[in-house]
Design a binder for these strands. Structure first.
Lengths: 111, 111
DNA sequence: GTGTTAGATTAGTGCATGCTAATGAATTAG
DNA sequence: CTAATTCATTAGCATGCACTAATCTAACAC
């Protein structure tokens, strides 16, 4: 077995690189909780495909699940984006280009 | 020809999802300018592979080039990260989780 | 019990992709 | 001129990946 586990950054990036899977994540994020059937509904792919995408997202730490009866409800786990955040952080993009927004946000939350 | 151009977010994500290609971008970023030969040096892959990766990065808007003699020097184009930035922005992760850092930074620059 | 529904998992398929090796095109050195 | 160097491009190959269709299990309804 030649595992060679990829680092978290690669896992997260790859999970979000596919448009269909990213759309799944976005829908999970927008809903507080959402079932697989409902995710399948507007997706354009089969239920099996959705389950596979959810598995990838879960492995990437981007979603979590809660089983209830025969349903499984998924919710977003934004901390999973942490590798992406710190990577971008390292390249300084946020601070330099988003200054005014930051200031506004801070004022809004702690005036 | 069935182009079906993927949106910028997908292009950028896919460009950065591959570890080798991401490493190329990082080295380009750290150097002000760097030639293909020098990029090839520590990369572990052939020069052809490096050129292919640079092509992907260029299409994603993440690097730019400057030809001089028989050398081609590459430099980073951080604006290319903009799709990623605004995507993350939309999900608010950055602000919420990096609050204290933000506050510190703002104080530091505008006390 | 039978039937139905929600979700995960598997095998199989077609296509994308990362790589090498080889070549091509352009520049420089002699 | 020839020879060497830099980089891009191509063909070919092997692997990865997104998808469907077909199960399989478990939880409900009757």
């Amino acid at each position: 077995m030649i595992e060679a586990a990829p680092n978290p950054m690669t896992t997260v990036m790859r999970a979000l690189a596919d448009p269909t899977r990213r759309a799944v994540f976005e829908r999970v994020f927008e809903s507080k909780e959402i079932s697989v059937a409902e995710l399948t509904r507007g997706s354009g792919v089969t239920q099996g495909a959705i389950s596979q995408h959810l598995k990838s997202l879960k492995q990437a730490g981007l979603v979590a699940e809660r089983a209830e009866g025969r349903n499984v409800y998924y919710r977003a786990a934004p901390q999973g984006l942490e590798p992406l955040v710190s990577w971008m952080d390292h390249y300084g993009v946020f601070w330099r280009e988003r200054f005014q927004n930051l200031r506004d946000l801070l004022k809004e939350i702690d005036p």
